[in-house]
Amino acid sequence: MLRIPCPHCGARDEIEFTYRGDATVARPGPDAGVDAFHDYLYLRTNPRGWQAEWWQHSSGCRAFLKLLRHTVTHEIRAVATATETLEVPGA
């Protein structure tokens, strides 16, 4: 079971959180076309390894966080607030 270190609340069980997708994709600007939005919404690297991802502490402080998590070992190496950047190893 994941124990997620919320920077505001401390380590909490995964049941307090909600996964909200790959955090390496960014919503395109207003002038971008269908292709850019298609890639943003649908195409995924889906790495077998480290992934930066959005999680919301939905049953806690409700902040959106970025987690650097390994998709095989489930290890959580880093956590950042929404405006901070996370370096993804090998990406």
């Binding site: 079971m1 994941l2 995964e14 909600t18 996964y19 889906n46 077998r48 992934q51 991802e53 998590r69 998709t71 095989v72 070992t73 489930h74």
Partner: peptide, 10 residues
């Protein structure tokens, strides 16, 4: 509820 290739549940 979250991506995994781990073949083990929670």
């Amino acid at each position: 509820g979250y991506p995994s290739y781990g073949q083990r549940g929670t």
